[in-house]
């Protein structure tokens, strides 16, 4: 491993951002980390240089560029993405797409060596004509009904253009599947932690998870080493949705698709936003990614899909019974 220089992390408060900081500082306390976020995270390590940046502001690109130049950052890790759905479409677009664009432009201006962006295999989209394993070359078709997925697809398209314009900067995109583990939480985790889980009647797609440790490990490896390109970051193995739920002893509420879609449309269009629009399509069709390229680059994941899931449910059980 060559010395990475100063690492700047956007979205320090996000799960991936904060876990990456912890990992990097554990590895060696000499690493200089610059954190950018909307507000200072609670109990931030004093070794981290913190800067308040609001990526939704129109001039945030020059602000980020200033910070990067001032701190002489060489690696930028962009993890400032929502893990929670929002009904506010405009805000979502401002943060995810335009915010990422600001970060990209700032990186180009500050001439950083490496840009690492966290993405998701959800961007391939649940389509009936997906092959069983989606490789990185597969087009990102997204989900037409989900604005958050569409925004993330736009981010990847912008990144692709940005890569062509900035050939000197290495770009690494990590597309991870649904994360499970002892401490991670988002709307997917909340869906799966319900005692009674609604499911589409007659559909039982194969699912693929990754453990949070493996996900952070891949992010850390991509931050410290040269791995230009796009990688699927997924666990080994697949499991049918119904097996996943039954292994955890959950009760399954199978509902015909028209009824379930109607039931979830109204709350998700309102302010509750949970689960987001189009979520149940991800429990309808296949969108399993081929992780071979990622495993070759970042090493074999410690947890398989099944083990990631078991790790998640066992910690949930311990919490419930204390």
């Amino acid at each position: 491993m060559n010395s990475p220089g100063v690492i700047a992390i956007t979205g320090l408060g996000s799960f991936l951002g904060s876990s990456l900081v912890k990992r990097l500082l554990q590895r060696s306390p000499d690493i200089r980390i610059v954190g950018l976020d909307l507000r200072r995270p609670f109990r931030l390590d004093p070794l981290v240089q913190f800067h308040t940046v609001d990526l939704t502001e129109p001039t945030s690109d020059s602000r980020v560029a200033e910070v990067l130049a001032e701190e002489r950052a060489e690696v930028v890790v962009h993890t400032a993405f929502r893990s929670e759905p929002t009904a506010d479409r405009e805000m979502d677009h401002e943060l995810e797409t335009i915010g990422s664009l600001h970060v990209m432009n700032a990186c180009a201006a500050a001439k950083v060596k490496r840009l690492v962006v966290s993405s998701s295999t959800m961007l391939y989209g649940p389509w009936p004509d997906n092959p069983n394993f989606l490789t990185e070359q597969h087009p990102l078709r997204g989900h037409p009904g989900s604005h958050s997925v569409s925004n993330r697809v736009q981010v990847e398209l912008l990144l692709e253009k940005w890569r062509l314009r900035n050939p000197d900067t290495e770009l690494t995109v990590l597309r991870n599947c649904w994360i499970f583990g002892p401490s991670y939480s988002d709307h997917v985790v909340r869906y799966f932690s319900r005692p009674i889980v609604p499911k589409l009647m007659g559909y039982d797609p194969l699912m693929q998870f990754i453990h949070e440790d493996d996900c952070v490990h891949a992010l850390e490896t991509a931050t410290l080493n040269r791995h230009p390109g796009v990688f699927n970051v997924v666990g080994r193995g697949v499991l049918p949705l119904s097996t996943i739920l039954r292994v955890a002893g959950k009760r399954i509420l199978s509902m015909p698709s028209p009824i379930l879609y109607r039931m979830t449309d109204y709350p998700s269009q309102g302010q509750t936003g949970d689960p987001p629009e189009g979520f149940y399509d991800y429990l309808r069709y296949l969108w399993v990614a081929d992780g071979q390229r990622g495993w070759d680059a970042f090493g074999e994941p410690i947890y398989t899909t099944r083990e990631a899931w078991m790790s998640f449910i066992s910690t949930r059980r311990m919490r419930r019974y204390r």
Partner: peptide
Amino acid sequence: ADWLITLPFVQPFLAQLGGVRACREN
């Protein structure tokens, strides 16, 4: 065929019995 492997109620059984969606990648 596509339409059969995504047909509700048929799809889970076909996959368990060894059916695979017909495409070159698979």
